[in-house]
């Protein structure tokens, strides 16, 4: 499973990447939209985990850009508040979202679920 994490909170995203890596997941991270698009262009990712609110663009806007370029990529969203979920569900059609602070086991489970449900590399 190749995963791209995108969140503007550097300490959050770098530590989460380290933890996922300890679980055997091939993970890279970006701290902004431009950074994410550049990294995604260099390697094939099965799944992207996107923060909903980032400077310059929302997670949904980034998802749109990534999905256009990489149609096979799956997405999971991270939100700061549960109240954003209605907006998220209504706008993206995705059921994969988690509220911060996240439970890493739940995140890994959602990753596997997303790939199993829509197809993807072996987990």
């Amino acid at each position: 499973m190749r995963v791209l994490l995108v969140d503007d909170e550097t300490e959050f995203v770098s530590t989460l990447a380290e933890r996922l890596s300890l679980r055997g997941i091939d993970v890279d991270y970006a701290t902004g939209v431009d950074d994410a698009l550049a990294i995604a262009s260099r390697k094939e990712y099965d799944l992207a985990v996107l923060d909903m609110k980032m400077p310059g663009a929302s997670g949904l806007e980034l998802k749109k850009q990534l999905a256009e370029k990489y149609p096979a990529m799956k997405f999971i969203f991270l939100t700061g508040h549960g109240s954003e979920n209605d907006y998220l569900l209504g706008s993206s059609g995705s059921e994969y979202y988690l509220v911060k602070p996240i439970n890493i086991d739940l995140l890994v489970s959602k990753m596997k679920e997303a790939l199993a449900r829509y197809g993807g590399s072996n987990v």
Partner: peptide
């Protein structure tokens, strides 16, 4: 504050 908690949680 949620962001702070998220970082603390990961650490």
């Amino acid at each position: 504050l949620k962001n702070v908690l998220a970082v603390l949680n990961e650490n």
